[in-house]
Amino acid sequence: MSGFFAILRRELTLSLRSQGDVMTVIAFFAIAAALFAFGVGPELNVQSRIASGVVWTTALLAAMLSLERLFALDYEDGTLDQLVLSGVEPVAMVFAKTIAHWLTTGMALLIAAPVVAMALQLPAQAYGALMISLLLGTPTLSLLGAVGAALTLGAKRGGVLLSLLLLPLYIPILIFGAAAVEGAILGVASTTPYAVLGGLLIAALTLCPWTAASALRHALE
């Protein structure tokens, strides 16, 4: 357990020292959402209609940005070798790194989301649903992302490949995340999206770290 916290602390220190990382994610989130606004035009009711989908889609894309480097930097400088040999269970190591990724991107998106949503005229009654759905959904994005990052470690054309692998797997989260917000806008209280997002999170928590750890072992071989 102490190894887990040591890795988590170091990951957070490293990404906070290069503040650029967190800022880039938020900036990407904001600019991508703005592109949608430019795409559909300045009419407020049109923006308000698509706000839930746009916030979720852009958040999802932003969460994918830094995934490529989740293991790649450690792979290139030999840290991954040392971590695997340090006696810390690889699953705990993957878990620590994934949590660090979520804390530095998922949390950042969570903080930025209300602002972006406001700019897109998201109706007031939907903010609660937006925050809850992001809170339940973004950790799953990071967990699935860890699997994708481990699988593409050392691959030619890594970044594009990672998107191709991950985006189809992200579709369920997008569907239920956006549906939760949409439901709140329409005032139909439905627990289904939350239940599914929660279920997906639990499934991802139990399966993804093991899968990613196994993929990492293969990557080092």
Partner: peptide, 22 residues
């Protein structure tokens, strides 16, 4: 994605294993 991943590594075996996991 499966086809692309399998072809993305210098080391054939690495691609095989990654694709199988995928």
């Amino acid at each position: 994605g499966y086809i692309a991943l399998g072809d993305s590594f210098e080391d054939q075996e690495r691609g095989d294993k990654a694709a199988a996991l995928l």
